[in-house]
Every structure is written in structure tokens, then in C-alpha cells.
């Protein structure tokens, strides 16, 4: 290095800070025994893109706070903001949000956050969505945004869950896979299948993914969301199938397996 120590770089023009807003719980829907959809009313909500998330902040009476990030489950719709929260057994925030938080209660949220794992209604290329478990949430926002925007972009969704009872949005997906022209839904069960399911429980492997996914030469945008080990495996397979890594967008949660 040459020259004297430098002053820290000056901040450039300050952008507007994303504020914390007070949201009120308007409605709940239980998706599974351990996952609950929260419909929030957030006055002055600025709107968001499918795939984005929010930070949620809880404050106890003595001022103690805890916060976590959650994906938005539905496209922008005025002051309505929809999250689906999976209860983590030893969690600090998710047990409150799924078991204690009641209609009419306030909570603070900040967002929208994230500008990469997003689908925009003007995007026209084919889309592949691959969800593992609760990773369906931001992908469901994309499926719903496609309908809301009357988009004709062809979508394929592969949704892997342990058992039928772990499926989020089960009825809606059943309905949409018939009603939404241009949306194909494939389900994968890894531990137990519904009765009369044509194949035994199995993990999403290369052969099946190559059938479900658009051919690489269609240059789809691929969105993969789920636990880290699932995302790692699917993203590697997509690259092996010839998809451009730059078109494979991932969102992961949880620790590495090692």
C-alpha cells in the first residue's frame, strides 16, 4: 500500500430509509398443523414484487425485541400483506406468530426487501419454480402474481413435501393446476404419498427434474427455494442439465448439512 491512511469513504446521497410500519392481523388461515397464513393490514404499504420478503419485529412489554424475515405469500394488493409462517419447534418468533398472535393484534413490519429473487409481471420467459417444504411461500406469490397480472408466461412448479399433510395451499394448488392455463404443477412426496399415488415416496432426482424442468435451451428463469440441502441439490442438477447458472436464482434457509 502506498500513501497515508484514508478517511472512510463519504456516504453518497442518502436514500430514503425503509420504515417500520404497524401492521394489524386481519385474518388467519391454517395451512398445515404447523403453518399459518397471516393476512395483515398495513396502511401506506408501498407495494412489492412476488418473491420479496419482510422483516417482522416483536416487542415485549419491557422493550425486548426479536425479529425475523418472512417471505411474502401473495402479490401486492393495496394495504393487504400476506405471510405464511412455519412454526419452528424451538423458535422464538414463529411460535408467537402461529399460536399467540390474534386477529386485531399489532405487529411491526419492514419491507419489502430483496431485489433478486423476484418475478415481475412484465417477465415473459418460461419460469421454473422448485419448492422444498415451506420454500413454497415466495413461489406461491409468483404463481398468484401471474394470475393477478393475467400473464401468459408459462410456469412449471415442482413442489416437494414430506407427506400430503405438509402441503401448503393444497386446495388452491389443486384448483389452479386445472384452472390456470399455462401452469403445470408436479408434486413430489419424500416420506409418504396420498393413497393410490402412482409412485412411492422419493426425492426429486435428476431424471424427474429433467422431465419437470423446461429444457435448458428454452432459457427459463429458475427459482429454487427451500432448506439449504434441497436447494443445493436442485441447483446443482439444473446446472448439470445445462441451465445457465446465472438464470438459477436461489433462496435458502437453515444451516448446511456439514
Amino acid at each position: 500500500m502506498t500513501g497515508p491512511p484514508r478517511e472512510p469513504a463519504a456516504r453518497r446521497t442518502a436514500a430514503a430509509r425503509i420504515p417500520w410500519r404497524v401492521a394489524r392481523l386481519a385474518e388467519v388461515r391454517d395451512e398445515t398443523p404447523s403453518a399459518r397464513t397471516l393476512v395483515l393490514d398495513v396502511p401506506q404499504w408501498p407495494g412489492h414484487l412476488a418473491g420479496q420478503r419482510v422483516d417482522v419485529r416483536l416487542t415485549a412489554e419491557d422493550g425486548y425485541t426479536a425479529r425475523r424475515s418472512y417471505s411474502l405469500a401473495a402479490p401486492t394488493d393495496g394495504a393487504r400483506v400476506v405471510l405464511t409462517v412455519q412454526r419452528v419447534a424451538d423458535g422464538e418468533v414463529s411460535p408467537y406468530l402461529t399460536q399467540v398472535f390474534a386477529v386485531g393484534d399489532p405487529v411491526e413490519i419492514r419491507g419489502p426487501i430483496g431485489g433478486w429473487f423476484v418475478w415481475r409481471p412484465q417477465d415473459r420467459e418460461p419460469v421454473l419454480l422448485v419448492a422444498g417444504g415451506s420454500g413454497i411461500v415466495p413461489l406461491m406469490a409468483m404463481v398468484r402474481a401471474r394470475v393477478a397480472a393475467a400473464s401468459r408466461a408459462p410456469f412449471r412448479l415442482a413442489y416437494s413435501v414430506r407427506t400430503p399433510g405438509d402441503t401448503y395451499y393444497s386446495e388452491e394448488l389443486r384448483h389452479r393446476s386445472r384452472a390456470d392455463a399455462g401452469l403445470d404443477v408436479t408434486r413430489i412426496y419424500t416420506r409418504a404419498t396420498p393413497p393410490d399415488w402412482p409412485v412411492p415416496p422419493r426425492r426429486l432426482g435428476l431424471a424427474e427434474l429433467s422431465t419437470v424442468a423446461w429444457p435448458a435451451e428454452f432459457a427459463p428463469t429458475c427459482y429454487v427455494c427451500g432448506p439449504n440441502s434441497f436447494v443445493e441439490s436442485v441447483a446443482d442438477m439444473l446446472v448439470a442439465l445445462g441451465h445457465d447458472p446465472a438464470r438459477v436464482r436461489t433462496e435458502r434457509f437453515g444451516p448446511s448439512g456439514r
Binding site: T65, F117, N228, E232, V239, V248, R252, F253, P255, S256
Partner: peptide
């Protein structure tokens, strides 16, 4: 501020692992 203690080692990446 706003952080919690994690014992594991979460992975966050925007795409496939090179």
C-alpha cells in the same frame, strides 16, 4: 442490534454453488 445468536451455520447464496 436486531441480531440473534445462531449455533449452526446457515447458507445464503443467490444461485448455484460454483
Amino acid at each position: 442490534p436486531g441480531q440473534y445468536l445462531e449455533k449452526g451455520f446457515p447458507v445464503l447464496s443467490a444461485g448455484p454453488t460454483p
